[in-house]
Amino acid sequence: MTENEDNLLDVAPGAPHNNILSESVAYIIGLALALILTGVSFWVASTGVLWGPGIATGLVVLAIAQIGIHLVFFLHITSGPDNTNNVLALAFGVLIVFLVMIGTIWIMAHMNANMMPDPALTNLQMQH
């Protein structure tokens, strides 16, 4: 097996493709999509047209979409067989990130709601 074929089998994260045009186009598409999603995020946060209570959730969804764009177009994480290791590591990272964030927010919100003594008695208040 030649060195060149060898390189096809696994790709490092962030390693771009081989053709200068397709590489540049990938970055330009990524930039355009990221700019659009950023613009939509700022618009959604500012407009009065949308249903207020849903806006925060919508913003989180837009952020996750944009993170996906960054991963695909800038870090070149794909679903191809040459990318299995990178994707598995990413999947584990995402699992831990979600466990830490959702777990903390969930538990602390419940403690805050259920276990807080009379606010006058404590200085550790979570003011709402």
Binding site: A12, P13, G14, A89, G93, G103, T104
Partner: peptide, 24 residues
């Protein structure tokens, strides 16, 4: 050329776990 960036990718992911704690 594969192993080094892959190891660095693992570091970056662990950095994201650090940030998830700060976000939380």
């Amino acid at each position: 050329s594969i192993v080094v960036p892959y190891g660095f990718w693992l570091f970056v992911l662990s950095d994201m776990v650090l940030f998830s704690a700060l976000f939380a």
